[in-house]
Design a binder for these strands. Structure first.
Lengths: 122, 122
DNA sequence: GCATTTCGTTTACATCCGTAATCGATGATC
DNA sequence: GATCATCGATTACGGATGTAAACGAAATGC
């Protein structure tokens, strides 16, 4: 099962720190998203049934923690995008951003450093 | 309005060549996707109401063409992913794939060439 | 001209998703 | 102990999506 966009906001909170109570998750997300508490509760429940998070009892309430690592999620999303749009490879995506003039000098510098590093390590 | 995943398959056909008749689009997509003709018809209709494509009469049938350029779609999708997962920047995505050992030597070579090229042009 | 095929249009329907409100149980208060 | 607050679970509901069948008009074959 798939983590939806809204659910991923909740996951973000838990990837940032865990375990968290529902209340804490609400505090971290609701305002920024314009959500009611009830919305967060729903999302927590859906994530539970999807086995994307787990809940452990802590007295009267539950504490939630991610079961899916952020890197798995990031990887699935990124790979899916690359496969759908760029033949599964990274370079064409970089090329696209370059063509769209969406690369700042900083981006380019960072990429250069990164490539050098990778190339070095390999 | 948003082009959905299934709709983007139809768009792909049209981005590849256009204008195309519904029949041609069915030929290009249905088998690969395991779709019935009816499904393609529905998707064409939804794309029409979304103004993502246009239809021009050609005798008894219509010929369809994209109104949304592929680069616009690619850009929207990519930017959304980068914003959601990588702070809106390309380098962290490349870093992620590197960490996941998902970069082949060819990818790295290609990236290096690309960066050099960009760096040169700027 | 009538039956048949062919298109596009309309309708269908289950699921997912975003967004919440309500309900029921459990714990806290007076 | 009765009442109030809290928390998770259940129910709600409209819109988007995937997937398609049914319908109706127009063209084609005899």
């Amino acid at each position: 099962m798939q983590i939806s966009d809204a659910e991923s906001i909740v996951m973000d909170a838990l990837w940032g720190r865990s375990p968290l109570s529902a209340e804490e998750i609400v505090a971290l997300t609701a305002d920024a998203q314009g959500w009611q508490e009830a919305t967060v509760k729903t999302l927590l429940n859906r994530l539970l049934t999807k086995k994307a998070i787990a809940a452990e009892r802590d007295g009267r309430r539950y504490l939630y923690r991610p079961l899916v690592p952020r890197s798995d999620y990031v990887d699935a999303e990124s790979t899916s995008l690359l496969d759908r749009l760029f033949g599964g490879r990274v370079a064409p995506l970089v090329a696209h951003f370059s063509e769209q003039r969406k690369l700042t000098k900083k981006d380019i510098a960072e990429l250069k450093r990164l490539i050098a590093e990778i190339d070095d390590g390999e």
